[in-house]
Amino acid sequence: MTVRIAIAQCAPALGAFKRNVAMHEEWIGRAQSARARLVVFPELSLTGYYLKDLAGDIACAADDERLGPIADASRRIDVCAGFVERAPDARLHIAQGYWSGGRLVHVHRKVYLPTYGIFDDGRYFGPGERFDVFESAIGPSGLAICEDLWHVSVPYTYAATGATVVLSPASSPGRGVAEGGDLGTAESCRLMDRFYAQYLTLYVLFANRVGHEDGIAFWGGSEVVAPDGTVVARAPEFEEHLLVAEIDPDLVARERDRNPLIRDERPDLVQSHLARRTGLVRRPDVAVERS
């Protein structure tokens, strides 16, 4: 049996929280009308992306009442949306929440905060430190916010710890129009989505935003890629779009029977090698190289 999901490829207003809550309610309604069980919004969908010093002004705690309308809406349909979290220790995080049954059931804090090229996340935000798998409407899932997905270890860690879905909300700016071809970022993202989906045998849901902030265009192109590498659905570039797709959780099992890469994976070896490399642990059962 398939589960219908939706991706809200929207254009959040920069620094206008209330307007964005209203925008979310509208898109949630549309996703409900399309009979979706889950609607995924892009990174920082409730705040906008290039916040700079606005980050502190617009931040809220994960249990803040300003997020109440999102929690309320999740009684009818699961909602995955982005906000700036003010942690109990006062640090600011780029956060993505997952609301279901009227409450916030999971929060992922962006771990990899890019500070190169047109990015400066690390100046304004603190990094997250966890990659926890949680149960979403379409199975065990992990959240990888934008740059998180560019780090191979992130989807790998999720796959190795039980996820069959990677949800990747993004605010990906379109760039690279020269070199004789189409948008460089779009090609890179599609390559990642398909590679991770096919070789980790899981679903990748890429939810990118559109619209402009300070002259930079977010390119959209949200997509759902199945564990066999098939692009199930893809939204147009640069336009707002509610992308609706059918997820078949059984396909994960079929694909993993055929191609048991995850079953045969050896995270214990990865762990022991990395532990040695980083000086964390030296396990006695790990062979020492001979000179």
Partner: peptide
Amino acid sequence: DFLYPRDWEAD
């Protein structure tokens, strides 16, 4: 170090 986006929108 007063760095707000130009596209700062009203709520």
